[in-house]
Amino acid sequence: MSLLSQVIHALYESPASTALRESEYAFPVIQTVHVLGVAAMAGTIALVDLNVLGVALRRQPPARTVADVLPITWAGFALAILSGAALFAAQSEKIYGNVFLQLKFVLLLIAGLNVIVFHTTTRRSIEGWSDTVVPPIGVKASAAASLLLWALVIAAGRYIAYY
């Protein structure tokens, strides 16, 4: 057994993972928390992206949108990642070989990197944008990529059950 499969096996057989996997209520509740967290996180990210693209929140400068919406995005992220970790642990041995689960992790990484790139490269320039001073094309491309990436993350997550 490889090191990875040994670690996964230990995680799967741990008392906490087993209890969650065999639970009557905890598992569905945590699944629901996961959906809510993802909805809040991806939903707010989508609206920031649409704001940068000039489609939504037209009178609101992107700088303010980002500042005001970020706490909700973080809260959603916290719920999504904690519930996601629990759901993964409970099913680990059965799903770590699932191609859609693996794809989802890769997409999450890319989406996360895109978020970091967006925030670091626009930290100073973002204050200058408004409905008359539009963001540069590279930034708009990052926003469009963000929309696509998070949509694919959600798709990959849904498809896990179909593998």
């Binding site: 959906v35 993802v38 909805a39 809040a40 991806a42 939903g43 707010t44 990210i45 989508a46 609206l47 939504a56 929140l57 919406v69 909700i72 998070w150 949509a151 959600i154 798709a155 849904r158």
Partner: peptide, 14 residues
């Protein structure tokens, strides 16, 4: 259905 749910949730929250 899920993707539009996320967008809907974002707009309602804001």
């Amino acid at each position: 259905h899920l993707i539009s749910l996320a967008v809907l949730a974002g707009t309602v929250l804001i």
